[in-house]
Design a protein around this nucleic acid. Structure first.
Length: 564
RNA sequence: GCGCCUGUAGCUCAACUGGAUAGAGCAUCGGCCUUCUAAGCCGAGGGUUGAAGGUUCGAGUCCUUCCAGGCGUACCA
């Protein structure tokens, strides 16, 4: 049940009856004394009709039918409507159930997209886990989600790598560390002219489909992808080899892209390059910004590939929405290719093309994040560090725990902390990377949420409660119970927001609030010590909390341990 | 130069897209474990939301002009 949507609809229907226009502007109450939900839209609607907002608010209440849903509706301030939900209705709001989208859509999500020439580093973290979380939410809502991992597996650098692979042999130890491999290849490339020439030839051979080059390339890609897959598996990301749709896949479609642009009369030559000039990208001075689709040497660019990808996704995959989870620095690029795609008819099905940009990860100095030696931190190292820190804490908190169990637990906690540390921030802005902050276990962190979950589990095991025998609904009575129940019921409002706008931090904020409400309830309302109806309803609320926490964390891609 | 983004407590971030007294965590200070896990709870201090104007019942949010930072801006992705 999406409460906000339901209330909005009812209020707006009432607006229509009264001849008013505008949105109801429903939101969760900003303060407890304002009830559970508030509607702010009356004031604007009244103003449009030049009427007294409080009088209009009264008329809305008179015509609004929320019998059995709201136990109290009040007018406050200049014309706010404050709603208090009926506890009996609240009990039936089915916490822990994800509302299914009607009708479900086909949604392509383009995310992760590591460069296969190098090892995954912290810069790939955001796209990978933000995209994965959005994918999980959309799937939970019943949408058909098509993951597209647009890996960088094509281009000039591969000539160098293929030639070096040929020279050093695929059993080379350096391949265990792609970063070293890349660097060594670069050294060879820079020092030896003959090597350079062979590397350039390898590129040409590869792109023209020579068999030896293709074989060598496939070997390299396979090795590189297995590195990525290791990271995905450790991170608990739902990507697998079947989701790979890299740049190379569109290679054969690229001449067709140019041809199509030409047929549409969009193509212009400029300094030897094939370009599309669009009025909307003119500067005030009248300078025009080209979208270059073919270089003067005949080579293609990422704009060309992305256009081919749009055509494929909108027609072959039949996508209703295509979401791109990439760095904010590509803002202009996506604006341009979306515009070109529309003009050229590549977006055959009028798919909604949405760029979900995220900011850069910075170091403490405010500059893009590097290690002391100037290297970018590898994801593998980041994850190891997170697990080690978690292990130390786990052993400190649970001295009796066997090492193997402690390791298992520290994986769940450490990886969760890394993911949550990133997901809980508004993706749009740059953010400062800090070991202690990212791998933190107190306050608004995933361990706090996991901890709240284990406390519920602990109640059930200690009280020897058969969860299955509990009733499915409980009517909250005491204030901490009510506050918890209201928060439980808001799950789907939050999920809808995440799905519509692609901001997983809404879900984090929600879960943190839920865990906080639960902990307050836990402190104030004894469960196992209570008896009869009181005990039952509190057990039910606890179970609903555990279910919702587990569900919400799973939608962020974070596991829940049974004890900590 | 032009364009996009950012500027909120000592630090790291929220603020449901114009709503009521700007909220959390960390850090600091004080209280709470013989009672369901203290990775927790309760409380205190800490703010001219970069600056100045403007729009209106109402502005951190919208507009204008500045200031500071980041990124992008013709053959990298």
């Amino acid at each position: 049940m999406q409460i906000k949507a339901m209330l909005s609809k009812r209020i707006e229907q009432t607006f229509a009856v009264l001849g008013l226009q505008g949105d109801a502007l429903v939101q969760a109450a900003s303060r407890p004394e304002f009830g559970d939900y508030q509607a702010n839209g009356v004031m604007a609607a009244a103003k449009r009709e030049k009427k007294n907002p409080r009088e209009v608010a009264q008329q809305v209440i008179d015509h609004l039918d929320l019998d059995g849903i709201a136990s109290q509706i009040e007018i406050a301030g200049p014309g706010f409507l404050n709603f208090t939900l009926d506890p009996i209705w609240l009990a039936t709001a089915a916490p822990g159930q994800v509302s299914q989208a009607t009708p479900p859509a086909t949604i392509v999500v383009d995310y992760s997209a590591p460069n296969l020439a190098k090892e995954m580093h912290v810069g790939h973290l955001r796209s990978t886990i933000i995209g994965d979380s959005i994918v999980r939410v959309l799937e939970a809502q019943g949408h058909q989600v098509l993951r597209q991992n647009h890996v960088g597996d094509w281009g000039t650098q591969f000539g160098m790598l293929l030639e070096y692979l040929q020279e050093s042999g695929e059993s080379s130890d350096q391949l265990a560390d792609l970063e070293t491999f890349y660097r060594s290849a670069k050294v060879r490339f820079d020092e030896d002219e003959a090597f350079q020439n062979r590397a350039r030839k390898a590129v040409v051979d590869l792109q023209s489909g020579a068999e030896y080059a293709a074989l060598q390339w496939q070997k390299f890609i396979a090795i590189s992808m297995s590195h990525c897959q290791d990271i995905y598996d450790r991170l608990g990301v739902t990507l697998s080899p079947e989701h790979i749709a890299g740049e190379s896949r569109y290679n054969e479609a690229l001449p067709g892209v140019i041809k199509a642009l030409e047929n549409k009369g969009l193509l212009q030559e400029s300094d030897g390059a094939q370009c599309v000039f669009l009025d909307e990208f003119k500067t005030k001075k009248g300078d025009i910004l080209p979208v270059i689709v073919q270089k003067s040497d005949g080579g293609y660019l990422y704009a060309t590939t992305d256009l081919a990808a749009i055509a494929y996704r909108t027609s072959e995959l039949d996508a209703d929405r295509i979401l791109y989870c990439t760095d904010a620095r590509q803002n202009l690029h996506f604006k341009q290719i979306f515009a070109v795609a529309r003009l050229a008819g590549f977006n055959a099905n009028q798919s909604s093309l949405e760029h979900l940009p995220f900011g850069t990860m910075l170091g403490a100095d405010g500059k893009p994040f590097k290690t002391r030696s100037g290297d970018i931190i590898k994801l593998a190292d980041l994850l190891r560090e997170a697990e080690n820190r978690a292990l130390r804490l786990v052993q400190e908190k649970n001295p009796g725990l066997e090492l193997q169990a402690a390791r298992k637990l520290s994986k769940i906690i450490g990886i969760g902390a890394v993911k949550y540390g990133d997901l809980c921030k508004n993706r749009t802005s740059d953010y400062v990377f800090d070991w202690d902050q990212m791998i933190s276990f107190e306050g608004n962190t995933s361990p706090y949420l996991q901890y709240a979950y284990t406390r519920v589990r602990s109640i059930f095991s200690r009280g020897e409660i058969e969860v299955a025998t509990l009733p499915s609904e409980a009517i909250a009575v005491d204030e901490p119970e009510r506050r918890l129940a209201v928060t439980l019921a808001a799950l789907n409002d939050t999920l809808e927001q995440v799905a519509a706008e692609g901001y997983p931090h809404y879900l984090c904020t929600y879960l943190y609030e839920l865990a906080t409400r639960f902990t307050q309830f836990y402190e104030a309302c004894p469960i196992l010590k209570s008896t009869g109806e009181v005990k039952t309803r509190r057990l039910v609320l606890a179970r609903q909390t555990a279910d919702t926490l587990q569900l919400g964390l799973s939608l962020l891609g974070i596991d829940t341990p049974e004890r900590m």
